Computed example of a mutant assay.
Amino acid sequence: MCGGHGPARPGVRLALENTDRRPDQLLTVFAEQDPEATARMLSYFVDIPPSDPSFVLFKDGELVFFMPRHRIETRDARAVASDLQDVFDEFCQ
């Protein structure tokens, strides 16, 4: 098990490196460094409690995927990447 945000960034990197399908745009919001950007991002999914770190995917303006903290921190980067690749395969061109 990895603690903290350890597997988050490496998981995204692995997912993006190992798939032909990927989101058109990638965006990172750092909660403690940019409260305005964080508030704006959270406004897009008001029914989901804040989770840091987390991953979200929007398609055509609709939230189609959310991976909360507990599905990131309790796993290694390869497991996180595998889930993200599955989501990219399903929702991305």
Results as ranks from 00 to 15, higher is better:
46 V>S: 14
33 Q>R: 13
65 F>I: 05
75 R>V: 11
55 F>Y: 14
52 D>S: 15
93 Q>N: 09
66 F>N: 08
34 D>S: 13
68 P>D: 04
88 F>S: 03
74 T>G: 04
65 F>E: 10
18 N>E: 09
15 A>V: 06
35 P>H: 03
65 F>D: 03
14 L>G: 00
29 V>M: 01
78 R>N: 06
23 P>D: 09
31 A>R: 15
30 F>H: 13
2 C>I: 04
21 R>I: 04
60 D>R: 05
8 A>F: 13
77 A>F: 06
69 R>N: 07
9 R>E: 03
12 V>C: 06
5 H>K: 02
2 C>Q: 04
62 E>C: 09
84 L>R: 12
93 Q>P: 15
78 R>S: 08
87 V>W: 09
49 P>F: 09
14 L>D: 01
86 D>N: 13
7 P>Q: 10
46 V>Y: 10
31 A>C: 03
60 D>V: 02
50 P>W: 06
60 D>H: 05
78 R>Y: 12
73 E>Q: 14
5 H>L: 05
25 Q>K: 12
16 L>V: 12
22 R>V: 06
87 V>L: 04
87 V>P: 00
77 A>G: 01
72 I>L: 08
32 E>N: 11
69 R>D: 03
37 A>E: 11
27 L>M: 15
85 Q>E: 08
38 T>L: 09
34 D>G: 04
30 F>M: 07
17 E>M: 11
70 H>V: 00
90 E>K: 15
28 T>R: 13
12 V>G: 04
73 E>K: 12
57 L>V: 03
7 P>D: 06
71 R>D: 15
68 P>C: 10
40 R>Y: 06
49 P>R: 11
70 H>D: 07
39 A>W: 11
74 T>F: 13
21 R>L: 14
23 P>N: 10
27 L>Q: 15
83 D>R: 14
57 L>N: 01
16 L>C: 10
91 F>L: 07
69 R>G: 01
12 V>Y: 10
46 V>W: 09
53 P>L: 12
41 M>V: 04
53 P>E: 05
61 G>R: 02
46 V>Q: 14
37 A>D: 08
63 L>M: 05
69 R>F: 07
21 R>V: 07
17 E>F: 01
13 R>P: 00
19 T>R: 07
47 D>G: 01
41 M>R: 09
56 V>F: 13
43 S>Y: 00
6 G>F: 15
4 G>H: 08
74 T>W: 08
48 I>H: 08
74 T>D: 14
59 K>G: 00
73 E>D: 03
63 L>S: 03
16 L>G: 04
72 I>S: 05
12 V>L: 15
70 H>C: 00
65 F>T: 02
89 D>I: 03
88 F>M: 05
60 D>K: 06
73 E>S: 13
56 V>C: 11
21 R>M: 11
10 P>A: 09
39 A>P: 00
82 S>E: 15
4 G>P: 00
23 P>T: 02
15 A>H: 09
87 V>S: 02
